[in-house]
Design a protein around this nucleic acid. Structure first.
Length: 305
RNA sequence: CGCGGGGUAGAGCAAUUGGCAGCUCGCAAGGCUCAUAACCUUGAGGUUCCCGGUUCGAAUCCGGGCCCCGCAA
């Protein structure tokens, strides 16, 4: 089939690569270059780079609602659009374009966790199971009928990045099946159980701040969920301190939450403790916790906010 | 010119008013020990990012440059 792929995040590149082998990919749609870093250098999305390597045409639309965009997409004459972690809401006029419609890969067991952060939310909540769903898109966000779904266990130490890669990997066979069923006309979309739908919110920087009164395993879930961004951070000595790696410890402590105790742990809620592994203070390079303590002798015994 | 922190031994960091460049760890050698990542002794390792200026004297003050990072986006 003639496919147009919509995507932006690096963990959906594998989906694009697979499509390129099994279908005819006419074009790749990704979000526009965004300024990145202190120098505000315009940077392409990872998907744009990958598409170039595959020698596929790349289109970047500021808005999907303009007549020009609609015309360009229409002229591609695609049979179907495939959307995975694209980053913009797709209006109904575009959903109407391809004869087989638009299908979306959503990394959750829909109708659970609709919205922008299903993977982070599952990890943050400490879920032990999740999955990936393929739906035929309709006007409402993550609302369309299911074309396929598979579930998987979440490993206790799995982080956002690892789980993202894994879920989109699992989606590839589902996607191939959905595409061939669409083509053969044997597709049997099943309506979602809308009554039980739940929604996720987009994240903010503040979501990464640690509340030390939470138990250590909850904070560890927060770490796993928000791994690259917004990350896990706290305040020490008036400065931001990023927690780059940590793990719950089986030590108990009666000190107040946020206290740094020997040799390298922090007291959390209910007397639980979290062992720090590597950190980064504002303005400095990432360092392992032993080095950090060597250089900041007042760290142990101090209070994190 | 968006805001801000920083560059000192292999690593992480100190150095008061401008006055012998230090601490913890690591490394090397030796010792102690049944033994050890423990302990004791000794040692090596520096163009204090680069260039220029002020000064009797600069890691420190001034000017210029390069590089790293946090925020923001």
């Amino acid at each position: 089939m003639k496919v147009v792929f919509f995507g932006s995040s690096d963990f959906v590149i594998q989906v694009l690569e697979s499509l390129n082998e099994t279908q005819t990919v006419l074009a790749v749609i990704t979000t526009p270059d965004a300024p990145v870093g202190r120098k505000k250098t315009l940077t392409e999305t990872p998907v744009a780079e990958a598409a170039k390597k595959l020698k596929l045409p790349v289109l970047k639309f500021e808005s999907l609602k303009t007549v020009e965009t609609l015309t360009e997409l229409s002229e591609l004459q695609a049979d179907i659009f495939v959307v995975a972690s694209y980053g913009k809401i797709i209006p109904q006029t575009i959903l109407n374009l391809p004869q087989f419609g638009v299908i979306n890969i959503h990394p959750s067991l829909l109708p659970i966790y609709r919205g922008p952060t299903p993977i982070q939310t599952a990890l943050r909540n400490g879920d032990t199971t999740t999955g990936v769903s393929i739906i035929k898109m309709d006007a409402e966000v993550d609302h369309g009928p299911l074309l396929g779904q598979t579930s998987t266990n979440i490993e206790p130490n799995e982080t956002f990045r690892g789980l993202s890669l894994r879920l989109f990997g699992l989606s590839i066979p589902l996607l191939n099946q959905a595409l061939s069923e669409c083509e053969a006309g044997t597709s049997k979309p099943t309506e979602q159980d809308h009554v039980n739908a739940t929604f996720t919110k987009s994240l903010a920087k503040e979501d990464g701040q640690i509340d030390w009164s939470e138990p250590a395993d909850k904070i560890f879930n927060q770490f796993r969920a928000y791994d690259p961004w917004p990350g896990l951070w706290t305040k020490w000595d008036g400065q931001f301190l990023k927690i780059l790696d940590c793990k719950p410890s089986d030590m108990a402590s009666k000190s107040s939450p946020g206290t740094v105790i020997e040799p390298n742990s922090v007291v959390c809620g209910n007397g639980t403790t979290l062992t720090l592994i590597s950190v980064q203070i504002e303005g400095k390079q990432p360092t392992d916790i032993q080095s950090f303590i060597r250089g900041h002798k007042s760290f142990v015994g101090s209070q994190l906010l």
